[in-house]
Design a protein around this nucleic acid. Sequence first.
DNA 1: TGTGTTTTAGTTCGACCGTTCTACAATGCA
DNA 2: TGCATTGTAGAACGGTCGAACTAAAACACA
Lengths: 212, 212
Amino acid sequence: MARPRAFDEGAVLDAAIQCFWNRGYEATSMRDLIARTGLTAASLYNAFGDKRSLFEKALAHYVEGRIAERIRRCEALAPRAGIAAYFDEVLARSLDDPEHKGCMVVNSALDVAPHDPRLGEAVAEVLGRIERFFRDCVRRGQADGSITTAMPADDLARHLLGVLMGVRVLARARPDRELLAGAIAPALALLDPAAPEPDPDDTPMISNPYGH
Amino acid sequence: MARPRAFDEGAVLDAAIQCFWNRGYEATSMRDLIARTGLTAASLYNAFGDKRSLFEKALAHYVEGRIAERIRRCEALAPRAGIAAYFDEVLARSLDDPEHKGCMVVNSALDVAPHDPRLGEAVAEVLGRIERFFRDCVRRGQADGSITTAMPADDLARHLLGVLMGVRVLARARPDRELLAGAIAPALALLDPAAPEPDPDDTPMISNPYGH
DNA sequence: TGTGTTTTAGTTCGACCGTTCTACAATGCA
DNA sequence: TGCATTGTAGAACGGTCGAACTAAAACACA
């Protein structure tokens, strides 16, 4: 027992996230991190280990604070609405951000994950969580009739995951509302159940209008 | 007059592409490039300028040799088939590549483009070309009835571009055939014209079966 | 064959990299 | 009030970075 930590670990990780998120792993120097977090090299190394380890912790903090939190919020909604809300949020955040940072996980997926097995696993695990969220939504939606059964839930979930990744890329390269919204809209329209089927029983209880 | 260049510029750019494509801009050192291209620092600097300029030329060479070439090949096909062929090729190349490099343009879009206006423009321009290819296909397909008119061609094109970007991300992070194919299939199914409409005139000349 | 230019092959440069070390201030408990 | 422990602060380390420089070798042309 001795002198307690004078800084808030979460706040430091948030600052580190800002660096890594914006410029990537390689382009972020320890001096950048020192300047941004406000504490010294010794404190950083003491509390978080080396640069790679700090990145790993920052990424985990990002995932828990942003992605997992968003999933938790959206899976509380009705299945179809949850999916729409997820994309709405991503769209809004992508357009709000003046730095056009996109998604830290997506950036990491292309940057560091392929050359670092541990990070690669962490990224793949997050993608799996998002995919699972989509799949659960689709399955529930298919069960209550709010989502089409014309395609397997697995494929629809994979498709949504792919669109999400694509939107995050476009958000960084060409952050334009029309482009991003246009990329998303067909994916949501795709979820709509087909027009009134001839089959009389098993009719969805909720009929939802077209249009996007 | 004087000693002619002993190396093939295209081959050197191809070697540089391999470096940048695989590890990204920052993580690739001039010494890596020297080792991979086989020529010396002086020759590299003399022929291509500094590292950034070499990257720019390598990226342009990549775009012309791979993407523009693919677009040219696919736009010669029937519209719906051209889109499918484009994705088929991307899928095949993504799964074939043992290094899982994805697409150099997508990687660059997240890595360097946001912090280099010239490169950012170059990347945005390529994305525009791909989007235009998709839009032209969709328009032609909507005209000949092979593609649905339920959504605007612009949005469908944006969606296809988004899916393409997403596939490239997933190809690098989780190169799994089921995942990639599953992400693509719904996007292609989405293009199918609606089932026989009640409206008698303006019926598509070609009716295409469902299934993916 | 001479002449001029460009390529090659190493070396070298200053800057910056991630990391560690040393000295010292701050704290909780005996 | 000591004392052990952990934080802070900044300098310093070896290494690697992108880039430039120095000669010597290779070639086309007159």
